Amino acid sequence: DVEEQIRRLEEVLKKNQPVTWNGTTYTDPNEIKKVIEELRK
């Protein structure tokens, strides 16, 4: 469920934690926001 994935990513973003997505770890909040934007398409 895309909405659920977006919610999880936004939670991690608020906590300033790194996100691992498709084998890539993102630590930059701007990169995480880009992943969220991609999911919304």
Rank of each mutant, 00 (worst) to 15 (best):
D1L: 11
D1M: 10
D1G: 11
D1H: 10
D1Y: 13
V2T: 06
V2A: 07
V2E: 03
V2R: 07
V2M: 08
V2W: 13
V2D: 03
V2G: 03
V2K: 05
V2H: 07
E3P: 06
E3F: 14
E3Q: 13
E3G: 10
E3N: 12
E3M: 14
E3V: 10
E3R: 13
E4Y: 13
E4N: 09
E4H: 08
Q5P: 01
Q5Y: 11
Q5D: 10
Q5N: 09
Q5A: 12
I6S: 02
I6D: 01
I6R: 01
I6P: 00
I6G: 01
R7L: 09
R7T: 06
R7I: 07
R7A: 11
R7F: 06
R7K: 12
R8I: 15
R8Q: 15
R8P: 01
R8G: 06
R8Y: 15
R8E: 12
R8V: 14
L9D: 00
L9H: 00
L9F: 09
L9K: 00
L9V: 02
L9W: 06
L9Y: 02
L9I: 10
L9N: 00
E10H: 05
E10F: 11
E10S: 05
E10K: 05
E10C: 11
E10N: 06
E10Y: 11
E11I: 07
E11C: 12
E11H: 07
E11W: 05
E11R: 06
V12L: 15
V12I: 13
V12G: 15
V12N: 14
V12F: 15
V12H: 15
L13P: 01
L13H: 03
L13T: 02
L13S: 04
L13F: 09
L13E: 02
L13M: 11
L13C: 04
L13G: 02
L13N: 02
K14P: 02
K14W: 13
K14G: 09
K14D: 11
K15T: 14
K15L: 15
K15V: 05
K15D: 08
N16Q: 09
N16K: 09
N16E: 04
Q17S: 09
Q17N: 07
Q17W: 15
Q17L: 15
Q17M: 15
Q17V: 12
Q17K: 08
Q17C: 11
Q17H: 06
Q17P: 04
P18V: 11
P18A: 10
P18C: 12
P18L: 06
P18W: 07
P18D: 07
V19K: 01
V19T: 05
V19G: 04
V19P: 03
V19C: 09
V19A: 08
V19D: 03
V19S: 02
V19Q: 02
V19Y: 14
V19H: 04
T20D: 14
T20V: 15
T20G: 03
T20F: 15
T20A: 06
W21K: 02
W21F: 14
N22E: 14
N22D: 09
N22T: 02
N22A: 06
N22G: 12
G23M: 02
G23V: 00
G23N: 04
G23E: 03
G23Q: 03
G23W: 02
T24P: 00
T24R: 13
T24I: 15
T24V: 15
T24G: 03
T25M: 08
T25K: 04
Y26W: 04
Y26D: 00
Y26G: 01
Y26N: 00
Y26R: 00
Y26H: 02
Y26A: 00
Y26E: 00
Y26I: 11
T27F: 09
T27R: 05
T27K: 05
T27E: 05
T27M: 05
T27D: 06
T27G: 03
D28V: 03
D28N: 08
D28H: 08
D28I: 03
D28R: 03
P29E: 05
P29K: 08
P29T: 06
P29L: 07
P29S: 06
N30Y: 13
N30T: 12
N30V: 13
N30E: 14
N30I: 13
N30A: 12
N30G: 10
N30S: 13
E31V: 07
E31G: 04
E31A: 07
E31T: 05
E31N: 03
E31M: 09
I32N: 00
I32S: 01
I32R: 00
I32E: 00
K33D: 03
K33A: 12
K33R: 15
K33G: 05
K33V: 10
K34T: 06
K34V: 06
K34G: 08
K34P: 01
K34N: 07
K34F: 07
K34D: 04
V35H: 02
V35Y: 04
V35I: 15
V35D: 01
V35K: 03
V35N: 01
V35S: 01
V35A: 04
I36R: 01
I36G: 00
I36S: 00
I36W: 03
E37S: 07
E37G: 04
E37P: 01
E37H: 08
E37F: 09
E37T: 07
E38Q: 12
E38G: 08
E38C: 14
E38I: 12
E38R: 12
E38S: 13
E38A: 14
L39S: 01
L39F: 03
L39T: 01
L39W: 04
L39K: 00
L39M: 09
L39I: 05
R40P: 01
R40D: 01
R40N: 03
R40V: 05
R40C: 04
R40F: 04
R40T: 04
R40W: 09
R40G: 03
R40Q: 06
K41R: 12
K41E: 09
K41N: 13
K41Q: 13
K41I: 10
K41D: 04
